[in-house]
Simulated assay, not measured.
Amino acid sequence: MDLLALADFNLVARHGGFGRAARATGRPKATLSRRVLELEADLGVRLLERGARTLQLTEEGKALHARTGALLVEIDEAAAEIASGGARPRGVLRVSAPLLFSQVALGRLAAGFALAYPEVRLEVTTEDRAVDMVEEGIDLVIRVNPDPDENLIGRVLLRDRLVVVAHPALARPAAGATQLPAPVPAVVRGRGERRAAWDIKGAATIPFDPVLRLSSLVMVRDAVRAGAGAASLPLSLVAGDLAAGRLAHWGDVDGPETALWALYPSRRLLSARVAAFLDHLRAAFPQGTPEELAAFVDA
Rank of each mutant, 00 (worst) to 15 (best):
L6V: 12
L11W: 03
A13C: 03
R20Q: 09
A22T: 15
T31E: 03
L32P: 11
L32M: 05
R34W: 10
V36P: 02
L39T: 14
E40R: 06
V45N: 12
L47R: 10
E49P: 13
R50I: 10
E59R: 02
E60F: 07
A63V: 07
L64F: 08
A66H: 10
R67P: 02
V73E: 12
D76W: 15
E77V: 09
A79E: 07
I82S: 06
S84Y: 09
A87K: 12
A87L: 14
R94P: 08
R94L: 07
A97T: 03
L100P: 02
L100F: 09
S102C: 08
V104N: 13
R108L: 13
E123N: 12
E123H: 06
E127Y: 03
R129K: 10
I138W: 14
L140W: 15
V141Y: 00
N151D: 03
L152H: 01
L152T: 11
R155P: 00
R159S: 12
L170K: 09
A174Y: 10
T178I: 15
P183K: 05
R191L: 11
R191N: 04
G192W: 15
A196N: 08
D199A: 10
V211W: 04
L212C: 07
L214R: 13
S216Y: 14
R225A: 10
L235A: 01
S236M: 05
G245N: 15
L247H: 00
A248I: 03
W250E: 00
W250S: 00
E257V: 13
W261D: 00
P265R: 08
V274W: 06
L278A: 14
A284R: 06
G288E: 08
P290Y: 02
E291S: 06
E291H: 07
L293H: 09
